[in-house]
Amino acid sequence: MVELYELTKTYPNGVTALDQISLKIDQGEFVFLMGHSGAGKSTLIRMLIREEWPTSGQIFVASRSLVRMKKKEIPYLRRSVGMIFQDFKLLESRTVEENIAFAMMVVGASSRDIKKRVKAVIHEVGLDGKEHSFPNELSGGEQQRVGIARAIINHPVLLIADEPTGNLDQRTSEEIMELIYDINRAGTTVIMATHAQELVKTARRRVVILDKGKVVADMPPGAYMR
């Protein structure tokens, strides 16, 4: 699903954010991406959706070379990748339903399909009854559910979660994690960047640790004990 070969990113100011990273993530896998701030997690994530361009090396997502990808092909790559964020990134002036439908509308789905699919996804993430609420009327956990619904509505093959529980308390975090596990169980590959060690420990999934732009550990499920 994701293949990186000696991927390197050096910024014009001389900072090397990624240093010859090679990594392979299979379809259906769940991988935690850990490391201190500035270890290269964010750069790697931005690279996966072609927000950044590698200095050298190769990168494949869903068998597509992102290095050779033309600019006009980028939207299609991003449609196959769902993203959720620490700060949810919801549109404050739109309701739950509109926030979720937005993701289908911008890729050109028909209104009939949107209606049907939005209803199903709202149910899937457990937001029934909140369709017409605005983001500021929701708890943090509920807002993240909206974010997740928006991320999965176009059936992505890869879900990238950037600190999805960073703003949530422990109980809410666990609920959100359950939801993400469900999505993974249904076949979607998940890459999740996080600092939450406890959560990673109990999750018993593959863990990749970055430090100063290098992969310093790649542990199989259950090996991360801290």
Partner: peptide, 17 residues
Amino acid sequence: RKEIYLMKLIGARDGFI
């Protein structure tokens, strides 16, 4: 800008935006 950024991440074509 926030909406535009989101649209780009979701995979809206430039023309749509």
